[in-house]
Simulated scan of single mutants.
Amino acid sequence: MKVSPAEALKGERGNFMMQALAGSIVSLLSIGAIAGGIAGISQFQVKQQLRAEVTNQASLTDSTFRGDVLWAAGIKAADEHHVEFTVPGPSGGCEISSWAIEPEGDRTRVRVTTVSYPETDTSTGQAKCAGEPSHASAADLIDDAAPESSFTYSNAAGRALSFNDGTPEADADTEKPANVDAGAWKSVSPAAVALDTAVKSSSKMKTPFRFAQTADNLHSSEATPDAPVHFVPDGDLR
């Protein structure tokens, strides 16, 4: 059967249209697959970045907080959100390190502010920073902490303490162990501090942490030397 040139051209055009349509569908599928792959890679990168931030912030908070508590010659607690450490330096200098849990917009941050002094005054028995202070230096160690984050305290005998505007109160619900000195049990001077918080609290990577440390550099007026000392566990860095 003889086919006219017009019919042949029409058939070829139809075949071309079908091929073009099929090609377009394949292209769209390929673009969709590529876009999906890019989105998957982006989500993976975001997760990896968040995971790295969790690790970095937790590690820095752990080392800084435990160092301040360990070497503190004085601990001044205001409440469950504010505490100040007096930390003498190895070369005669001194530093006051103030920790705060405070709101920042719709999030909560853990911030430490440090002021350095050239001298440590021990003339009154308890070490104090002395001399001309430096400008305050502040750093947010955790930028997205849990809103319920808090500092907790205990004395050298392990008895829990609470503070309200700097006024201390010892836990009345815990019975004194038989081997603990009565004077040490009654003490309202903090000798151990813990920070309970979480990093990246508003994200799916929210990770809880407990950083805890016993002070090892307090003056004898802060902790009774003859009493058993209660050591809190090392910071729970997971």
Score class of each variant (00 low, 15 high):
Ala39Val: 07
Gln48Trp: 12
Lys47Asn: 11
Ile41Phe: 09
Gly32Arg: 08
Asp68Trp: 00
Ala39Ile: 09
Ser42Val: 09
Ala35Tyr: 06
Ile38Asp: 00
Ser30Lys: 04
Leu50Tyr: 06
Leu29Ser: 15
Arg66Pro: 00
Phe65Arg: 00
Thr61Ala: 13
Ala39Cys: 07
Ser59Ile: 08
Arg66Thr: 14
Gly37Ile: 01
Arg51Phe: 04
Ala58Asn: 05
Ser30Thr: 14
Ile38His: 02
Gly36Phe: 08
Ala39Trp: 11
Gly67Asn: 08
Gln57Ser: 13
Ile34Arg: 03
Lys47Met: 06
Arg51His: 10
Val46Glu: 10
Ile31Cys: 12
Ala72Met: 03
Ile41Lys: 06
Ile41Met: 09
Thr64Tyr: 03
Gln43Met: 11
Ile34Trp: 05
Ala72Gly: 03
Ser59Tyr: 11
Lys47His: 09
Gln43Pro: 01
Val46Arg: 14
Asp68Met: 00
Leu50Trp: 09
Gln48Thr: 15
Ile41Thr: 10
Gln45Ile: 05
Ala33Val: 15
Thr64Arg: 08
Arg51Gln: 14
Gly32Pro: 07
Phe44Gly: 06
Asp68Asn: 07
Ser63Trp: 04
Phe44Glu: 05
Ser30Gln: 08
Gly36Pro: 07
Arg51Leu: 05
Val69Phe: 02
Arg51Glu: 13
Asp68Gln: 02
Phe65Ala: 00
Gly40Ile: 01
Ala58Thr: 10
Ile34Ala: 13
Gly40Leu: 06
Leu29Gln: 09
Ser30Arg: 06
Arg51Pro: 01
Gln49Arg: 12
Leu29Glu: 04
Ser30Asn: 05
Gly67Phe: 02
Ala33Gly: 13
Thr61Cys: 06
